[in-house]
Computed example of a mutant assay.
Amino acid sequence: MGHGGNVIAELTTDHREVDELFAKIGALPVGDDQRRKLVDELTIELVRHSVAEEMYLYPAVRKHVEDGDVIADKELSDHAQVEQHLKDLEGMAADDSQFDPLVAQLKLEVSGHVRDEEDRLFPLLAAACTPAALDELGDKVRTAKKMAPTRPHPSAPDTPPGNKLLGPGAGLVDRTRDLLTGRGKG
């Protein structure tokens, strides 16, 4: 979280970190408690990443990319599905019979979303924006991730201005809960 560079470099690095977390989860035996801890880490990263994209990336896509509204709406729909899976996994024990199928479905959906962003959305955005604009978006995304919630909130708004108003408050509450419970601390 918070790597530096323009928005595309920042988000691509996040994507690789998520890939690594899925690989770590997959390398552990079914039912291993460490899988639960890794899913918590994965959830934190995915929620922060998604919130930052919703606050800054998708509005920029709507503004600068041809057919940006259609593209952004599709990405938001992907996020909603992923967030619901994260909510379903929240608090579920690693040995629950639904845990592994949900993690597998989550991985499939996240992988498809990442491919779509990296193969289609990022090149379109890079062609439509100046390097300075992409750098500025990178800074905004990094700032947003620091303030973002760390737990799924499927009913929260995912577009401005609602997400920019409610996100930081939910983020503060989530980070306080994480601190008190030790969630996300491997």
Results as ranks from 00 to 15, higher is better:
E83H: 05
Q98P: 00
R16V: 15
D116K: 12
P168G: 10
K185A: 08
L11W: 02
A156K: 13
G68F: 04
E41G: 11
A80R: 10
R115M: 12
P157Q: 09
P131H: 01
L28W: 05
D178M: 05
D174P: 10
G112R: 09
V82A: 05
E118M: 05
A170W: 15
G162A: 07
L108V: 10
A127D: 15
A133L: 03
A148P: 03
R48D: 09
T12A: 15
H153P: 12
V141T: 06
L86R: 04
P152A: 01
I71K: 03
L57M: 08
K107R: 04
T43N: 03
R151G: 07
D67I: 09
G5D: 10
P152I: 00
A93W: 02
L172D: 01
E20R: 13
E17F: 13
D14R: 13
K37I: 01
R36T: 01
F122E: 10
I44S: 04
P154F: 06
H113V: 04
P29T: 07
S155M: 13
N6Y: 14
A52W: 07
D88S: 11
K87Q: 14
E117Y: 09
D158R: 15
A148D: 09
D96K: 01
A127G: 15
P149T: 08
L165G: 06
P123A: 07
L86F: 03
Q81G: 01
G167V: 04
A133Y: 00
S77A: 07
I44T: 07
L76H: 07
A133G: 03
Q81F: 00
G138A: 03
L121A: 13
E17H: 14
S111Y: 02
G138I: 06
A144K: 09
D174S: 05
M55S: 10
L165W: 04
R48V: 02
D116A: 14
S111V: 03
V47N: 05
T12L: 07
H85L: 01
G112S: 08
E83D: 06
H15S: 13
R16W: 14
H85G: 00
A127L: 15
V114G: 11
E53S: 04
A126Q: 15
E83W: 09
V141P: 14
D32M: 02
D73Y: 03
E109V: 05
L42E: 09
D32Q: 03
G138F: 11
T159C: 12
L179D: 09
L38K: 05
P101H: 04
I44F: 01
T143Y: 09
E17N: 13
L166I: 11
L172S: 01
D73E: 06
L86N: 04
V51M: 12
L108F: 14
G112A: 04
T13P: 08
P168F: 08
S155F: 11
M147T: 10
